[in-house]
Design a protein around this nucleic acid. Structure first.
Lengths: 321, 321
DNA sequence: AGGCCGTAGTTAATCGATTACACATGGATG
DNA sequence: CATCCATGTGTAATCGATTAACTACGGCCT
């Protein structure tokens, strides 16, 4: 910057003013400065700027698993919204691992992100407290924690799940396998509670960890137990379950009715296409980013609760008639 | 930091020494400092540190499309490797868009990443030159640009593609539809050249843009033209093509032979399972991160060329006998 | 003419770290 | 006993920006 100033025959203060679009500089000086910048190929050091202004124009996003397309879509949406407001997003991948999650959150705080979006790996409020204590704006996304005091953005699947339950019961299923998420995550617990609640005593629950492997194992257990319907509580466990179903050469829906929480572009391509509960991922991501930016802005955004929708495609068989 | 120093009755220099594990401080002073840090909940400002040391311990990764699982896997691998060496990764999503790509690259440079991994959207060397001119370590990943002078990490599909071509020809296919990537990307061009080359005059090529929509459109065109085999040059276009095939109620492999470049976890679940050319995504990501770290370290890593493998699963029909 | 004001630009303090250099202390050496 | 060195710590310059406070200049009013 000193070089630019010298080159243009002004002081660094003037260069800074030009760069920040302040009122002061004459159009003529402005020109000279811009020319010097151009000529020297100068780019301002964002680190120094941030140090001085205590604003990085950066949001942190810590998600549970980058390989899960659900989170990838969310990340994408967050990024879009943030960029449109001049913010940049740093993504941290916690891998459904509490320790890695904490490490990432701390790294992001150390780098002074202006705000943090977190999809907590568990419902333990420890980490959230730590962030709040540091006074950094925080919004929870998809999942919440016990006694959360910050804004939360999530999808509500209750309606869709009860509708699904009603159909299964109506079609005469009496042994319904539920591949549930981890009970120490809000989404894992809530979805399962709603579904088993509406199924009365017909549900058989096995807990997985929101990953493919646990999906196949859970499916194997439940199929051994003789269930006639299988519901996976997220797309990765659904993928695992489908693998197990295929390995046993079972026909959907004839041998087994099947549905998944989370939609994926390839679900309609299966035969039959898979019935799902679709979450509005893009809207979730955008809403979360907006809430966080509002918070950074000093406003106090409300919680956002979007609704997930049951999409019937055929994998439930007669339950869809 | 001043507070910590005061609290421990030492100078900031000593605090800094403790923090950086320098030899100097007495075990006893060290203890006092650590206690003060603990008590005050002090966390050091990474911005200030980076400003002074001119090292951010951060790698930039600009990928073409976060929603493409191929890139998501790569990102994941890069991140793993980087973290294991104490580096953090900032991901930028270019969305197969040159302008957004340039914006992201510049943002990352402004934030003084220690090195940059780039999956270039086109083979235009402009942006690469700009980065090199700035003296920032750069490694290209998956794709290269014309006249690249920096290390490149990619997968070589030539062998797999010729093997695939041989099988198609051997099975008697005479009209083979190729859903190609954009000709201004190295992967788009090279894959297509190899395949059409080994197919003699039997190939019919339609160019897509590595996204789902273009895959369905290209498939529609080619199917209208009466091809008996369809090869998609990446997984998203493959997804689109499958949609079109399904919409027309065509049977694979009876009505149409089908294969895709890129593997995906759900390909084995289709009926029949889809034959693919699988790229070693994880190894690519790790290798790229390693190369970049070597470059940052002042070493001069070689280009890395891994091989993609043909995985036969049944969607080619008799071509697989 | 003298006082006042607005404008364009400069000087220098500051953000929070790192680190070269200076300094003090104490034990070993000639 | 003076000298020297090793060791642990403090002082202050520095990284590259922003910005409050100040100066210089010219015109306007009375």
């Amino acid at each position: 910057m000193k070089d630019v100033a010298q080159h243009a025959g002004v002081s660094t203060a003037t260069v800074s003013r030009v760069l920040n679009g302040h009122a002061a500089p004459t159009p003529e000086t402005r020109e000279r400065v811009l020319a010097a910048i151009e000529e020297l190929g100068y780019r301002r050091n964002a680190l120094a700027r941030s140090l001085r202004t205590t604003s990085t124009q950066t949001l942190g996003l810590v998600i549970s698993d980058l390989l899960n397309p659900f989170f990838a879509e969310i990340a994408r949406a967050v990024e879009d919204e943030a960029r449109s407001q001049g913010y940049c997003v740093v993504i941290g991948n916690a891998d459904e691992n509490t320790e890695q999650e904490a490490t990432y959150v701390r790294t992001l705080l150390d780098r002074r992100v202006d705000g943090l979006l977190l999809c907590p790996a568990t419902d333990d409020p420890g980490l959230v407290r730590e962030v709040s204590a540091g006074g950094v704006p925080l919004v929870l996304l998809d999942r919440t924690v016990r006694g959360a005091t910050c804004p939360v953005v999530r999808a509500d699947g209750s309606e869709a799940l009860t509708a699904l339950a009603r159909r299964l019961v109506g079609a005469g299923h009496t042994r319904i396998g539920v591949i549930a998420g981890p009970p120490n995550t809000s989404t894992g617990r809530e979805r399962t509670d709603v579904l088993t609640g509406s199924l009365g005593g017909l549900a058989q629950v096995v807990h997985g960890d929101f990953r493919q492997g646990s999906g196949s194992q859970a499916a194997a257990r439940l199929l051994d137990d003789g269930v006639t319907a299988l519901i996976a509580m997220d797309n990765l466990m659904g993928l695992g379950a489908l693998g197990e179903i295929r390995a046993r050469a079972l026909q959907i829906p004839h041998d087994i009715a099947f549905a998944v929480f989370d939609d994926q572009p390839w679900f309609p391509l299966l035969d039959p296409p898979i019935t799902v509960i679709a979450q509005p991922t893009v809207e979730m991501g955008r809403a979360a980013a907006r809430s966080l930016l509002a918070l950074i802005d000093g406003r106090q955004p409300d919680d956002v609760r979007l609704t997930a929708k049951l999409v019937l495609r055929g994998s439930l068989g007669e339950a869809e008639l």
